[in-house]
Simulated assay, not measured.
Amino acid sequence: MRLSPPLAPMLARSVAALPPPGARKALFEQKVDGYRTIVFTGPSPYVQSRRGADLAPAFPEIARAAADLGIEAVLDAELVVHSAGRLDFAALQQRARRRGAAAERAGRAQPAHLVVFDLLEVAGNVLMQEPLRRRRDALEDLFAARRLSAPWALCPQTEDRDVALAWLDPAWGTAGIEGIMIKDPESLYRPDVRGWSKLRARTTTEAIVGAVTGTVRAPTSLLLGRLDASGRLQLVARSTPLSRAAAAELGAVLRPAGPQHPWHDRHFSAGWGTKEPLVFQPVVPEHVAEVAADTAVDLGRYRHPVRYLRLRGDMAPGDVHE
């Protein structure tokens, strides 16, 4: 094998829409909710995370599948766990923390899969300087020749813009499809370069304004919640920074809350993957906001910040439940 880990994956930049009809030809792929993974198959398999770490100890069934493929290859994929009818990112995270016998038990209870979308090397032939359409043909040939099945899965791909639009339907989001990857069929594989595009599936939803960052009169972002089965306010999302107009609108109606607020003395992290506490000001949870959100939800919380759209004066907090 000529390639070796760590190998930086090719990246994508976010876009707001699909290319218009009649634009330059593009290939569309489903963007699944998992861990970006580059898999080195063969006698000494390596299951590489985006940052170069070996995931094999946490996912031993994937390492065995890579060792048993029967040919040395380097594949670009998303590592996923399927649970209760959808891709389960929270279960994937939990599995990533386990080792040894615990990882083996987790692999039997919640097996992982690889959704493969690119082939970078096969049988000593490096394909990174081949156009994507040829790499895809080689990948499909590999799946057919080896009769690959679980844990291997071939990422759906289409040239049909209407099919790609259908993948943005919220029903796909419920199943764990975050959006669409948009790729030039002639593109070469360029590690660590944002040469592809990604469009996240988004939908509108409602949540209760429970706290703000900044000040109550001049908020900079919102902490949003929903009522659980017992009627208690639970955090579900944080907003992106508010526009000046939105900050003025909200600052005029929000009221500071006292110690009776359900989030009084609660601690939330300032960002994904950090333990730094977030400084926030609780407000009386009496206003409902409409927000635009993507489909990535972990244990009831939106993984990515949502975008504030407007206040919903026609809705009461009691209307908004998990």
Rank of each mutant, 00 (worst) to 15 (best):
W272T: 06
G214P: 02
E186K: 02
G85N: 04
A101L: 11
A171N: 12
L199G: 06
G179M: 04
D88Q: 02
L119Q: 15
A102V: 06
D33E: 13
T203K: 15
A166Y: 01
A53F: 13
L154G: 08
F117I: 00
P5T: 03
V216D: 05
H261A: 05
Y308E: 06
E121A: 13
S243P: 01
S239M: 10
D314V: 07
R200F: 10
L168S: 01
V297E: 05
L227S: 10
A164L: 03
L224K: 11
Q94D: 15
S83N: 13
R146D: 07
A246T: 00
L119C: 14
H261S: 04
P256I: 05
M315G: 00
L222R: 05
A106Q: 13
R244K: 07
G179F: 09
D184A: 07
F40D: 08
T295D: 03
R13E: 15
A292Q: 14
M10D: 04
A207K: 10
D319Q: 02
V291S: 12
D294H: 03
V283L: 05
Q157P: 02
L235G: 12
A106G: 06
D169K: 00
R98D: 00
L299P: 00
T220R: 14
V236G: 03
T174Y: 07
V288L: 09
F280P: 06
F89L: 02
V39F: 08
L114G: 00
D298G: 03
R307Q: 12
P317V: 10
P170D: 09
D54L: 03
V236L: 04
D294Q: 02
G231M: 04
S4W: 08
D265K: 12
G225I: 01
I71D: 09
G34T: 00
D118H: 14
D319T: 03
R97K: 13
L235S: 15
A63F: 10
R226E: 11
R147S: 15
Q93R: 09
A247E: 03
V81Q: 00
R217I: 07
F268D: 09
A16R: 14
P305Y: 12
D192P: 02
S83P: 13
R255N: 05
Q110C: 12
L139K: 09
S221Y: 12
V297N: 04
P21M: 11
F59T: 00
L222T: 11
